[in-house]
């Protein structure tokens, strides 16, 4: 083997070593959470890198707790409703912003973009008042309403980019046939928009599923909480005796669906994220 080949080999080995480091760094915390959640509580405080035995005690513990099951149900209800509302309002608004030229369009786009950058805390007191006056405090309805603040601008923004890329001829043909804008959206664009809607819907779902500040502030009782709040508030006898086993089991339970979704829809998510940021 001459020197050139040797250098090439060393580079290859270096590349794979670096990839291995990145992989371990990305996956290990989650892997360690899975391991911890599958340990019996007697072995919890011994550091292990792999499992010697399987124990589902922690999972049984959290799933027999009514408040946790209820929290999962609340999270699913809130996230799906939020996605539905964001897509419904987002598709029609993005048609207006992406396909129709009218005065004030740039202003509306800037308003949408501005809202997507609102710090949640800045609207906390005002939103609290709105939610209480609508009788939605300590109710998933209040969360569905408040999550619109970050899912709707994002959905509108990304769908508008997708709408703009669709060919003009389609719409011209529809206009020639005398189709109203509503018919144009539902019969012409909607069938073409499914991929884009799946992407934005998925991203909105993840955002709603993970939200914490509003869920913590606008709910009060265990039965109305969402999963992130339920996990954050799991506590033991004292500050220093957190029940790590059940916490890890709950964490893995709410993360696995997301990880599976991300694995399946990897390409879509990447295109959605970059459409929102790079291409705009």
């Amino acid at each position: 083997m001459n020197q050139y080949q040797l250098i090439k080999l060393a580079k290859r080995v270096g590349l794979y070593a670096l990839i291995a480091v990145v992989m371990v760094y990305a996956i290990f915390p989650f892997y360690y959470a899975v391991i911890t959640s599958l340990k019996p509580s007697s072995e919890l405080f011994r550091v292990d890198f792999w499992l010697s035995s399987l124990d589902f005690g922690n999972y049984v513990h959290i799933f027999t707790q009514k408040s946790f099951v209820r929290a999962i149900f609340n999270s699913i209800l809130v996230s799906i409703s939020v996605v539905f509302i964001a897509l419904l309002l987002g598709v029609t608004a993005s048609y207006a912003l992406g396909r129709v030229r009218f005065r004030g369009r740039t202003t509306v786009m800037l308003v949408v973009l501005g809202v997507s950058m609102f710090p949640q805390v800045a609207v906390l007191s005002g939103l609290f008042e709105v939610i209480r006056s609508l009788n939605l405090y300590n109710n998933p309805g209040g969360l569905i309403l408040s999550y619109t603040i970050f899912t709707l601008p994002f959905t509108v923004w990304v769908l508008t980019t997708f709408m703009r890329q669709l060919p003009m001829e389609l719409e011209e043909a529809a206009i020639m046939d005398g189709a109203t804008p509503w018919v144009t959206i539902t019969k012409v664009f909607l069938p073409l928009m499914w991929p884009a809607m799946a992407t934005t819907g998925l991203l909105a779902f993840i955002a709603a599923w993970n939200e914490f500040l509003f869920a913590l502030t606008f709910t009060l009782t265990d039965s109305q909480r969402t999963v992130p709040v339920a996990i954050a508030l799991i506590s033991g006898g004292s500050q220093h005796e957190l029940p790590w086993g059940p916490i890890m089991a709950a964490s893995v339970t709410v993360t696995v669906p997301l990880v599976v979704l991300v694995m399946i829809f990897q390409r879509r998510i990447v295109s959605g994220l970059t459409a929102g940021a790079v291409k705009g």
Binding site: A26, F212, P228, V229, I231, M248, T255, V259, V262
Partner: peptide
């Protein structure tokens, strides 16, 4: 992509 998909609360707890 995994760390991105994990809820912030969960990653903080982990």
């Amino acid at each position: 992509l995994i760390p991105w998909a994990i809820p912030t609360i969960v990653s903080a707890k982990m």
